[in-house]
Each structure stands twice: as structure tokens, then as C-alpha cells.
Design a protein around this nucleic acid. Structure first.
Length: 188
DNA sequence: GATTGACGCCGAG
DNA sequence: CTCGGCGTCAATC
């Protein structure tokens, strides 16, 4: 059904406070994937190269990666979302946004404001489905962690839910935004 | 088909 | 409080 498009990408990195961040950019300059913060540079790069084996390193987009790092540390940056490749019909591979359902979920999560949270159920209702679990699965495929704030999506019972980069990263992100957590639950 | 998810809800202990 | 069972739906085998 789908072919793996082998297009050249570039990877840019940034180090901040002993954490490495990496991001992949397609030939048209759009972001196609962001790594989670890693303590080892190679791990950050691998998160991108696993999905896009044909890559070369470049520093032309280091500034954008730096912005992402700042967002991780709690800065409320008005990131330019048009930089994200979210078009499922693009000639450039996005690798984990392949269906319109996944696209709907990612675009809905992208709207969650800084310092607030929504539940998987909220997201499901916004896109008119009862497939709560399917929403969770799609959120888990978010290729743009931090920028598309999947860390702001929690369970209806106040539980944190999961996070691909490790639950500790989700906790850090939320607390940096001023959200209070006590024994694994969000406090209203 | 059957299974598996970063889920949600309700009811029984 | 925890657990199990069922609802629900997209992706994957």
C-alpha cells in the first residue's frame, strides 16, 4: 500500500544543558521528525535516522532545533507550525502520519495551548470519533514531540498516560509549564 | 478474522 | 482503592 520514499534529508542537532536534540528536514525545508531529548548525541540522531536512513548532517537548521530545546526547558515559544510536514499527500515522507485519521489527531493536539492539558477523550470528541484507544495510538506516533504537544494529552481519570520518550520527560515538560502533578496524577 | 493499543466507563469487591 | 469486563475503532498481523 505504501512505499518507503527514499529521499535525502538533513539532520541538525543542538545541545543544551547536557541534553542533545536532533531534527530531520526534507529537501523542501520542512520538519519531518524531531527526536526526544537524549543524553547521548548518537541516540538523538538515531531517532531520526531509523525512519530516514538516507541523511546527511547539516547545521543550517540548528536555530530551529535550538528553539525546540528551549521549549523543552519550559519556554513558551510561538513555534511556526507551518514548518511541520503534516500533509499525508506530500511527496516527502513523514513516516508516521500516513492516514487522515492520524493527521486529524496530530493537528488537534497541535492546538492545545501552553500550560493546559486535554484528555484522549477530548481529542477523540474534537475529531468526532469514539475510538479513544485509536487516538492514543495515533498520539503515540507523533513525529514532532514537544512542538506538537502530545505531553499535554492525559487520561480522563487524571492519570498521565504514556510517553514514547519516557514518562519522566512528559513529567518534566508538564511541570516546566506550571502543571502540578501529584502521585502520577494531574491536579486541577 | 483476531489481536493489540500512550483509552473510557461502570460495577463488584 | 484495585480489578475485570465491555465499549469502541484504527492499525497490524
Amino acid at each position: 500500500m505504501y512505499r518507503r520514499k527514499i529521499s535525502n534529508i538533513t539532520i541538525s542537532t543542538h545541545k543544551q544543558e547536557n541534553l542533545y536534540f536532533a531534527a530531520g528536514f526534507s529537501e523542501n525545508g520542512k520538519l519531518i521528525r524531531i527526536s526526544h531529548p537524549q543524553t547521548i548525541l548518537e541516540d538523538a540522531i538515531s531517532e531520526i535516522s531509523e525512519h530516514h536512513p538516507k541523511y546527511s548532517m547539516s547545521n543550517e537548521n540548528n536555530g530551529i532545533v535550538k528553539e525546540i530545546a528551549c521549549m523543552y526547558f519550559g519556554e513558551n515559544i510561538d513555534f511556526d507550525l507551518t514548518l511541520l510536514e503534516t500533509d499525508i499527500n506530500s511527496e516527502y515522507e513523514t513516516s508516521t502520519i500516513k492516514t487522515s485519521f492520524e493527521q486529524d489527531v496530530i493537528l488537534e493536539v497541535a492546538k492545545i495551548p501552553y500550560g493546559t492539558v486535554k484528555t484522549y477523550k477530548d481529542i477523540a470528541e474534537s475529531i468526532n470519533t469514539h475510538g479513544y484507544r485509536a487516538v492514543g495510538t495515533a498520539v503515540g506516533k507523533n513525529p514532532f514531540p514537544i512542538v506538537v504537544p502530545c505531553h499535554r494529552v492525559i487520561r480522563s481519570d487524571g492519570g498521565l498516560g504514556g510517553f514514547r520518550g519516557g514518562i519522566d520527560v512528559k513529567i518534566n515538560l508538564l511541570t516546566n509549564e506550571g502543571i502540578k502533578i501529584k502521585s502520577g496524577k494531574i491536579i486541577d
